Amino acid sequence: MVRRVSLVLGILILMVLINSVGIWANDYKLSVDDQLFISVWGHPDLQRQTVVGPDGKINFPLVGEIKAIGLTVKELTKVLDTRLRQYIKLQEAQVNVALEKYQRFRVTVLGEVNRPGTYQLQKGKRILDAISFAGGVNQLADLAHVKLTRNNKSLLIELESLLNGDNTLQNYKLEDGDVLYIPEDTIEVTVLGEVRKAGKYKLKRGVHLSDLIAQAGGLTDRASNKAKYISGKRTESLELAKIFNKKSNNPNLKNGDTVYIPKTKYDWQRFFFFVGGLNSLKDLLN
């Protein structure tokens, strides 16, 4: 009975040790200089603290060197258990490994990056390091309104100037549990009528009407030269030929804008087919 109570007490102490450092022991992968506390029930001579060495290994009595780097606490416990069974009799849950101090921490990068997710970084890493781990920002990123959240408090980061090297003071050191959020800088616009792929499009802020038409696959053969541009309560008639030839203003689109391109009044395709047919008949008669 006393032995069972002691075992339960030992497990509770180990749980407190894990929680006291706020560690996510289930998925944290061990790194160089991480400090571990290892105990084996019934063998107080095997209880000890150890540190993951520069070679990524720990040294433990009886079993010698074990590669710990890259393993979770659970995986290392299993390796120790297997190796120790060659020398002593063990029952289940008799090998306990607790992570007391760790050199890596977890940061989450969300939003408009190429590989959003949670990353383990070494202590001392900064905002730009985390974004690099996440594959960098994508073309839809709003670099002016990046948020760093720590302990439920958010700080606005001017990422564009940071990337350009103009404001390195904002390249803050990160801490365990930090969240970086890079919002999208996009607008949603609609193109209807004589384009090859009519519909709604999410585009980078700052695009022009000609960019939207290109995104929609270009004009059909029956597209009119006249287009209706609807922005808010304002409707404007535009000549596409002048826009494409840079002889007229190419509107900078805003969120919610709509472009409508009607059919031309003249079916030029049929006209040219008809003219071509007449020429062929004339050649045949001659």
Score class of each variant (00 low, 15 high):
204 K>L: 10
210 S>M: 09
144 A>T: 12
233 K>V: 11
254 K>M: 11
57 K>T: 14
190 T>K: 12
63 V>P: 00
79 V>T: 10
68 A>I: 05
43 H>I: 01
196 R>Y: 10
100 E>A: 09
283 D>E: 13
68 A>V: 04
181 Y>F: 14
212 L>N: 01
228 K>T: 14
18 I>R: 11
191 V>W: 05
239 E>G: 07
2 V>A: 15
79 V>M: 02
276 G>L: 01
31 S>Y: 01
81 D>V: 02
186 T>V: 15
137 V>W: 06
175 E>C: 05
101 K>V: 11
143 L>E: 05
20 S>T: 12
149 T>N: 06
196 R>K: 15
51 V>L: 10
201 Y>V: 09
66 I>Q: 10
29 K>L: 10
73 V>S: 00
55 D>M: 07
95 V>N: 02
135 G>W: 08
284 L>V: 07
14 L>T: 11
149 T>P: 00
73 V>C: 03
216 A>V: 02
119 Y>C: 06
280 S>H: 04
109 V>S: 02
38 I>M: 04
240 L>Y: 04
178 D>Y: 00
133 F>I: 09
143 L>R: 08
245 N>V: 02
84 L>V: 09
27 D>S: 12
141 A>M: 03
243 I>Y: 00
229 Y>D: 01
89 K>S: 12
117 G>Y: 06
286 N>S: 13
200 K>N: 15
139 Q>F: 13
175 E>Y: 13
194 E>V: 06
13 I>M: 11
97 V>P: 00
103 Q>P: 00
153 K>E: 13
96 N>K: 12
188 E>C: 06
261 I>E: 01
52 V>M: 04
129 D>I: 05
251 P>Q: 05
90 L>V: 07
53 G>Y: 02
124 G>E: 03
130 A>G: 05
244 F>I: 09
263 K>A: 13
128 L>Y: 01
184 E>C: 02
107 V>A: 03
216 A>R: 01
58 I>Q: 03
41 W>C: 02
57 K>E: 07
164 N>L: 14
176 D>G: 08
256 G>H: 07
68 A>N: 03
30 L>F: 07
198 A>D: 09
84 L>I: 06
258 T>D: 05
17 L>V: 14
126 R>M: 06
244 F>E: 03
39 S>N: 07
80 L>S: 01
281 L>N: 10
74 K>F: 11
189 V>E: 05
120 Q>A: 12
216 A>P: 00
257 D>W: 01
263 K>Q: 14
124 G>I: 11
271 F>D: 10
217 G>S: 13
81 D>G: 05
213 I>Y: 04
128 L>D: 02
154 S>A: 15
48 R>W: 07
191 V>F: 03
271 F>L: 10
171 N>R: 04
165 G>L: 04
105 F>M: 08
4 R>N: 12
68 A>S: 08
37 F>N: 08
118 T>K: 13
95 V>A: 05
27 D>P: 00
225 N>G: 15
271 F>A: 10
191 V>C: 00
90 L>R: 07
143 L>G: 03
204 K>P: 01
134 A>D: 03
175 E>V: 07
119 Y>R: 02
207 V>N: 00
219 L>D: 04
38 I>V: 12
177 G>Y: 01
24 W>D: 15
43 H>E: 09
173 K>V: 06
234 R>W: 08
169 L>F: 09
124 G>H: 09
253 L>Q: 06
91 Q>F: 07
53 G>A: 15
17 L>W: 14
76 L>H: 03
213 I>Q: 02
80 L>M: 13
272 F>Q: 08
